[in-house]
Write a protein that binds this DNA or RNA. Structure first.
Length: 199
DNA sequence: GGAACGATTGAT
DNA sequence: TCAATCGTTCCT
């Protein structure tokens, strides 16, 4: 029960996020996202991420700061969450230095704790359908617009140390669901993990 | 003011 | 393969 009684020292420090965004995306694999909500604690292992960087036309910050993407230009280690398709929210971790609009999209978690809570929030029984997709994990973890700008080194939502991941376990591919910048190798996932959003 | 478009999901 | 559904962004 890794997220239930984590120590302060287990929380990833702000310095973790102030590195090259693709490196942060890769290094987030195996880490654990933990949310303490009124309904109870839920957590999941990060198994799939994507980096969105400067100069990349698919990055929300590509055309400069707007009301929506303002958090991407703020301090690293904060939450950038956005609404899309008229019904879904997606969760990102802000990276790089203030003034640089970059972030990592968390696309899938392996459900770890509070699984019954997540099942209830999702209205789905099958474990594979709980956190396997960016909007699915937001719903399962009970996240929302109120988390916009939240500091991930502070409760109720943190990312803590998990399992070390070797290079052999990591697949690097192009990103999912974008129309521009589609050739960039900025998607990272655990090869053998069954909870990723897509093969 | 208006229109086009999503870093998706779930059903067909 | 396709509809759902609406805030954000950009154009007029």
């Amino acid at each position: 029960m890794i997220g239930l009684n984590y120590r302060k020292k287990d929380i990833l420090p702000g310095s973790f996020y102030s590195r090259e965004t693709a490196v942060v995306a890769r290094e987030l694999l195996g880490k654990v996202l933990v949310h303490k909500s009124g309904e109870g604690l839920t957590s999941g292992i990060i198994v799939e991420t994507e980096a969105y960087i400067q100069g990349d036309p698919s990055c929300h910050a590509y055309r400069g700061m707007t009301p929506r993407n303002r958090a991407m230009f703020g301090p690293p280690g904060r939450v950038y969450i956005y609404f899309t398709y008229g019904m879904h929210h997606c969760f990102n971790v802000v990276t790089a230095n203030p003034g640089v609009g970059e972030a990592v999209l968390v696309r899938a978690l392996e459900p770890l704790e509070g699984i019954d809570i997540m099942r209830k929030r999702r209205g789905r029984e099958r474990l594979r359908e709980i956190c396997s997709g960016p909007a699915r994990l937001v719903q399962a973890m009970g996240l929302g617009p109120t988390m916009y700008g939240h500091d991930l080194t502070a409760e109720p939502l943190v990312i803590i140390k998990g399992t070390a991941i070797s290079e052999e376990e990591v697949a690097v591919t192009t990103r999912v669901g974008i129309s521009t910048g589609k050739d960039l190798p900025l998607r990272f996932y655990l090869k053998e993990n069954v909870y990723i959003s897509r093969k």
